[in-house]
């Protein structure tokens, strides 16, 4: 999957994304945001915020920045912000592999249903770690490939189909986290069908120095 394809697929989705994905994934989004462990005054980044399905779920005493690669998705999100009066939320169009933020600015960073839709998930995670402060929380809500060999084979087989709809089914959590300075605190399986994981990490990057 390349960046152009991602933009194209998700521009098409923007029209009916809420209808298709809103209800099904609601509970998982609530759980993922809870695992960010937000406190009053925290600054939080959501990567791949899309049409802003999760925006009403954030506490109003935090500053929330949402980024997405796809303009039409963000326009929908901006309308939601206006309609619901969510003045603590700001949206920007960005490529998650080249974020337009300085280092260590966020107390918590969430990527929900993102890692399987981007061409370079490791680079996205490296950027999430860079912009998150040392000791901050990074939460991934995603499908990760199953250790079971038979299921892995099925996932590899359906992978081209998944790529066509804008999703990769064979992403391995262990190799994604390899060589990062993220410590997994919790790894929970969530609905629908326990196919999804919420992975809560603590950013163990050094207080001063390299991004990861």
């Amino acid at each position: 999957m390349d960046t152009e394809k991602v933009t194209k697929v998700y521009s098409v989705y923007s029209g009916f994304y809420d209808l298709l994905f809103g209800k099904i994934f609601h509970d998982s989004r609530v759980a993922a945001i809870n695992l960010l462990g937000l406190r009053s005054g925290d600054r939080v980044l959501e990567v791949g915020v899309g049409t802003g399905l999760s925006l009403p779920l954030y506490p109003r005493n935090c500053t929330v920045i949402g980024i997405d690669l796809t303009g039409p998705m963000l326009v929908k999100g901006a309308k939601k912000i206006q309609r619901l009066g969510l003045g603590h939320i700001h949206l920007q169009q960005m490529d998650a592999t080249h974020m337009a933020f300085g280092d260590s600015l966020f107390d918590a960073v969430l990527a929900a249903y993102v890692m399987s839709t981007v061409p370079d998930p490791r680079q996205v995670l490296a950027e999430m770690s860079r912009v998150c402060r040392p000791g901050g929380r990074i939460v991934l809500l995603n499908h990760f490939s199953n250790g079971n060999r038979l299921i892995s084979r099925v996932e590899k087989t359906i992978s081209p189909l998944c790529t066509w709809i804008g999703f990769r089914s064979d992403l391995c959590l262990k190799s994604l986290l390899d060589e990062t300075c993220l410590d997994v605190e919790q790894n929970l399986k969530v609905n629908p069908f326990n196919y999804w994981h919420i992975v809560q990490c603590v950013n163990r990057k050094p207080a001063h120095g390299a991004a990861h």
């Binding site: 920007q92 960005m94 490529d95 080249h98 337009a100």
Partner: peptide, 9 residues
């Protein structure tokens, strides 16, 4: 654009 900064290189 539409009050959203487009921070794409």
């Amino acid at each position: 654009k539409d009050e959203i900064p487009v921070m794409l290189i």
